[in-house]
Each structure stands twice: as structure tokens, then as C-alpha cells.
Amino acid sequence: MFDSLSEKLESVFKKLRGQGVMTEDNIKEALREVRLALLEADVNFKVVKDFVESVRVKAVGTEVVQSLTPGQQVIKIVHDELVAVMGGNEDNGLNLAAKPPVAIMMVGLQGAGKTTTCGKLGRHLKNLKRRPLLVPADVYRPAAIEQLATVGRQLGLEVFNSSADQKPVDICSAAMRFAELNGFDTVILDTAGRHQIDDFLMNELAEIKAAVLPLEILFVADAMTGQEAVNVAGGFNERLDITGVVLTKLDGDAKGGAALSVKAVTGKPVKFVGLGEKLDALEVFHADRLVSRILGM
């Protein structure tokens, strides 16, 4: 549909010859292409606006170095700025440093991939020689508890016994006590999907947070999300002060620009990416890989 940004920028700069420095004038068209490419990748409108402005400030006045074409140089500035926005290659590991059991709470919109990611994280932690307990605290979605129970069975992980007539906060509190008594060091709480504007259900999450004091509250975001990502992530972060993000379904052809919006609006790091339905399809997040993907490099 759209050519890659690199190709576009090469053709933009083909018209300019022999310029020594980048000026307002000669990068205007290039920035327009950058803007379109980011919007195409589902980065939020306002986030794009601010970002393009910061690239303009960076680019204007820079010498075009001999070894790069002006197009390559703009790409480099955009790439490096995007990587910086995404937190560079900072350590995005889980924070589990506290007296066990520590709790990890998964939150997010309906269908984002929370339950599946609970299983994936459980497997990941088991490989790190921890003893995770999976806790089904979604009492709303039909068969949500059975879903997590099945995932646990597939992975050989213990799943806390809960039922749909219990209150989610009671399930979570009881699971913490159970973990303490039975030697589980990490408790992974699966919560029901919800909209950030649903006061009743957002309150429920706040109650769970207050009751179990999770070290990690991971906002699970679908990589195919569009402009909404800022509203949703902003809403969850405001209410819960999330600690990180898991970006799921990156195994398709979505560019995943929503991750940029989420990072921009919450300031919280993406910690993991989901790359498939299978329970081993979880990887640690790499900012530079996502940026290359967004830029079609």
C-alpha cells in the first residue's frame, strides 16, 4: 500500500542536490513523509505531532555527513529518536525483589491476551526456577476460569481454585495466603477484560491492588490497537499506576505503533512481547526491533 519510509525519503531528497546542512525548507517534505509513516503505523495523532516536532528541531542545522544520503540521515535521526522514546535498550526485567510471595497483576481491555500471557509468564518464571501460582480472578467471562485452569494444566503449573460466585478481590487475597502457606513465590493474577471508562470494574482492580500490593501491574495491549491506545493506556495508568506493558499479537503484520502511544502517555516500559498463541511465544522487549518494524526497515 505505502512504500517504505526509506524509499520515500530517498525520493524526497532526490530533488535536492548538494545541500550541506538540513534546513527548515529542505526537510519539510521529509517530515511530512515521516508523519504519514507513523500515522500509518497507528501511532497516535498527538504523539506523532510532538514527535515530528522533536525530529525537526534535531534535524535542522545538522550537517549532512558524507557517508549518508540526506534520506538516510533523516531516517537515522527518526530511528534514534524513536528508540529513545521507547526507552532505548534499558533493562525491562520484572521487578520481583521483595519477600515472597510477590504478585503480578495482569490488566487490560477485553481479548487483549491477559489469560494467555499469564500462562506464558508462568512458564517464563518456572524456567527461572521460581514457583508461580496462576490465579483466575475473572468471574465474568464465560469459562474464563476453565481457560486458565487448562493453560495451567498444559504447562504443569498450579492454578488456584476459584469459582465464578466469588468476588475477585477475595479470590486474590485468598490466593496470596495460599501461596504463602504452600511455598509459591510468585502469584500471577488474571483479571477480566474491561474498558478503562467502566468505573465499577476499574474500582474492582483498584481494590485488588490495595489488597495484594502487586509489585508488577502489567497492562496487556494488543499490537493491532489503533488510535485508542492512548485513551485506554492513559485510563489504566491513571487509575492503577501500572508498572509495565506487554504487547501481544506481534506475530502478525501489525506495525505496533500503538506501543509508542502507550509509552508516550504512560512513561512505562514495554517489558514483553507476545508472538503467538502458543505458551512459549513470549519474548523480552527490544526497542530497536519495534522501531525497525514501525519504519519498515
Partner: peptide, 11 residues
């Protein structure tokens, strides 16, 4: 299609 989906819905 999920209403929160961006441009990927076209693909």
C-alpha cells in the same frame, strides 16, 4: 473486527 483495531483491520 474489534473497534479498537487500527489500520491492521484492512489487512
Amino acid at each position: 473486527l474489534d473497534a479498537a483495531t487500527g489500520q491492521n483491520a484492512v489487512s
